[in-house]
Design a protein around this nucleic acid. Sequence first.
DNA 1: ATGAAAGCGCTAACAC
DNA 2: GTGTTAGCGCTTTCAT
Lengths: 344, 344
Amino acid sequence: MSAPTVYDVAEQADVSIATVSRVFRKPDAVREATRERVMAVARKLGYVPSGSARGLASRSTGVLGLCFPDYDDSTAGVDDGEITLYSDEIIRGMERAARRHGYALLIAASLAGGTESLVAKVAGRVDGFAVLARTVPTEELEIVSRRLPVVMLAGPREMDHLDHIEVANTDGQRQLTRHLIEDHGRTRLAFVGGAEDSPDAQARFHGFQLACQDAGLPVPDAPDARGDLTQADGRAATEALLARPGPAPEAILFANDQMAVGALRVLEHRGLRVPDDIAVTGFDGIPLTRLTRPPVTTVRQPAGRLGENAVDLLVQRLADPTRAPESVMLPVTVVRRESCGCGD
Amino acid sequence: MSAPTVYDVAEQADVSIATVSRVFRKPDAVREATRERVMAVARKLGYVPSGSARGLASRSTGVLGLCFPDYDDSTAGVDDGEITLYSDEIIRGMERAARRHGYALLIAASLAGGTESLVAKVAGRVDGFAVLARTVPTEELEIVSRRLPVVMLAGPREMDHLDHIEVANTDGQRQLTRHLIEDHGRTRLAFVGGAEDSPDAQARFHGFQLACQDAGLPVPDAPDARGDLTQADGRAATEALLARPGPAPEAILFANDQMAVGALRVLEHRGLRVPDDIAVTGFDGIPLTRLTRPPVTTVRQPAGRLGENAVDLLVQRLADPTRAPESVMLPVTVVRRESCGCGD
DNA sequence: ATGAAAGCGCTAACAC
DNA sequence: GTGTTAGCGCTTTCAT
């Protein structure tokens, strides 16, 4: 099973290894007769250029990478594996864009209890890579980004010398909230945020605040409840809100879809009708939101676009490493479904 | 931006390059004091081992690959990007399994009009890879599989010395057909196949034939219509079937979901009710089938499993290249939904 | 436990 | 158009 090398091919084709190399890199630089002779031998021998050797010699791999967190499939499944994960869309977007630019895509998720560095594993084998926010320690990124183009996906801009793509969390939540207020006349609103260190959730809460302010409503200085972005926490937060003294809110806005979906269960169980008695909204636009009853109004993140833009940024920086770091803000879209009171 | 190497680290840490190398491969083989000194320097310099150099020297990359066809996103979208593609599930399955085994995943789709060999691109940078059937010419696989573990996904077993994983197409279609006949009493059935060179579609048709035979119904020797597995072709095939003289079929079985979904549109447009007037079934189990009205009865392929099994086979073969080639058949499950007459 | 030295298979000048 | 010659940055014996 020892693989044939340029030397083997060169010898049998009676040319130098340089010519063999040329045949595979710039065929046009080799006379046709020679080229075909080389190709024939290569085919016969089953020669395939070693990516490692190429990478070493040329200092470039033709591969872009993506690091993402150790996602948890189990929360995704409803009753099977049919749910598109956010990361799937990013992967697809990156793959598509990478392909267009002639790159392959290396993907790696962090190991749950993984001691070893994800970044080191990926960084050594690619020409540049994208990282989903909070997947790897900032310090590591700091180091590796000195050597390699790195683009940060989502999350806030933690490192200002990195290219960075984020989605319009604040703006999206603001629009959504305004919709609830202006189009559905709901004014007694409750917002369920995420952990305090979740920048996305914070940004969304800020959007909520802005909308309240826009409408002349009282502006809360903290979410009415917080959760860890899981369905279970959505349920818990909902219970907590309903247990508060005074009238129940007319609408509960959740910092993400999972929590909103969790809330639906609680509300139904309590005999509260959505959206008649209480409106519910999420954020992210995961497919699950359209499968629930009622379908959940949410804000869709352009995950595929995130991936494509990431590749574009990487390719640009590869072409010109001196470019000033760029920070792109991707627009989101409010998806109106039944849970906010919009007809189906 | 020139990356630091073992030499840089070695020099500053006052050790040999061999020791630096050891620190990153088997830390235990180095005295703690030395190790920490090396690590400190490495961190300071931002040293990251070069995957290419490692690969070259050690003849192994720690990466597994996946080649798939140049899929067409445009057919996927319904009204957005929410649809999980078959390949997404395979990717996710492979990624998960690869991660468990300590491998990263390199994915590459063939370029639509791509002249260059996908296989060559991938083969040179991985320790082994999976190929979705019909993605690359058999001849190329033949060659590269002499050097590298390759596992073929889906499709028939074209090369008997390759590991191979397929899905129980025939059996699934047979079960589904039997369900239609026995549980819903439909006997005037029409089958819409795929291109004649689509082995999956052929296998499904064969399952249909077997079920007809089982039930004592006339056994057709060719599909009633064929399509290219797209929604558009599903519509066309349906039109064609309805235009035939004589009574319309009581059920139309499609070789895949996309065509079945296309059919739904035609049927609705014609005022035919599904399943009352005519039952419809698909194959694959794409998420779209549960979102249509009515939801489509189909046969779900375990795409995630495909990916996981692929990695397992690759890892096994890497561990023992002399193993006899294995051919795994993955079971499918009939998903009964409204379009066949089952309650929702 | 550590070092010295020989490649791994290729690309990239540069000569011819 | 083709050949020569250095490396690319690491792993791997084999010494010490």
